[in-house]
């Protein structure tokens, strides 16, 4: 009778603990590794500063490059819609904020749920469009590896189960809430060992690009 509840209690307790441990250890380990490798000594005379241009590039690369947009408009549009929708769903939904608050000791204001709901729908549509684009575009298909499908699924499942849970489309509710948590746990476990790490490495890479160009005194 109470299996869905037992399942929910498991994924809310031990399951979440295990996934979070793997996630944190994995992410810290990989970042530590990247930073500790360092970079070779540049013997050239510096022609500018590294820090300022590095930070600036982190910001300026948020604006899409016009050439990429002309060549692959779909990639750019889907990419932006998906990422913005995902961030809204993840960071501005009050129940999620409560979890962050419990973890880090501080929270922030959330958005009204109809707005988050709309963002979630946009995210899900964008993810489906991304899947279709990846499967139908010859170039995309050529450069897609098994890991890409896995990462897509790991991102899609929390969105889908979250949407179903919020709208109570699965009976009983503890089952779908448990599945939502389980899918998030899968994402957390896969995160450090897949391309999902770009969430963090993206900023390191941008900073290095900007810093290197700054050192050479060129615009980035």
């Amino acid at each position: 009778m109470s299996e869905p509840m037992d399942f929910l209690l498991l994924v809310r307790g031990t399951g979440f603990d295990v996934a979070l441990t793997i996630f944190v250890i994995g992410v810290v380990l990989r970042l530590f590794e990247i930073f500790s490798l360092g970079r070779g000594v540049n013997l050239a005379e510096p022609r500018g500063r590294e820090f300022g241009p590095g930070m600036r590039t982190i910001l300026t690369r948020n604006v899409p490059d016009p050439h990429t947009f002309r060549r692959q408009p779909l990639t750019v549009v889907i990419g932006y819609l998906f990422h913005i929708g995902l961030l809204i769903s993840l960071l501005l939904f009050v129940p999620h904020i409560e979890l962050f608050k419990e973890t880090f000791g501080f929270g922030w204001p959330g958005l009204a749920t109809p707005i988050v709901d709309a963002a979630a729908v946009i995210t899900i549509i964008a993810l489906l469009a991304a899947l279709w684009h990846r499967a139908s575009n010859p170039v995309m298909r050529r450069i897609t590896r098994a890991e890409d499908w896995l990462v897509w699924l790991a991102t899609f499942l929390p969105m889908l189960t979250g949407y179903l849970a919020y709208h109570r489309m699965v009976d009983p509710y503890p089952l779908i809430l448990g599945l939502h948590l389980l899918s998030v746990e899968l994402l957390l476990v896969l995160f450090p060992f897949t391309k999902l790490m770009h969430t963090f490495t993206l900023f390191i890479a941008r900073w290095y690009n900007g810093a290197m160009n700054g050192y050479r005194g060129v615009q980035s």
Binding site: L9, T14, D17, V24, V28, L29, F32, E102, L181
Partner: peptide
């Protein structure tokens, strides 16, 4: 009195322990 979305385990503890373990492993890897 905990919001429904908060896991039943000690998440802060897990994050701190994980971060320390990750840093140690990272140092070894380095």
């Amino acid at each position: 009195y905990n919001a429904l979305s908060i896991p039943t385990s000690d998440v802060t503890g897990t994050v701190v322990t994980g971060a320390v373990a990750g840093a140690a492993l990272g140092a070894a890897a380095a």
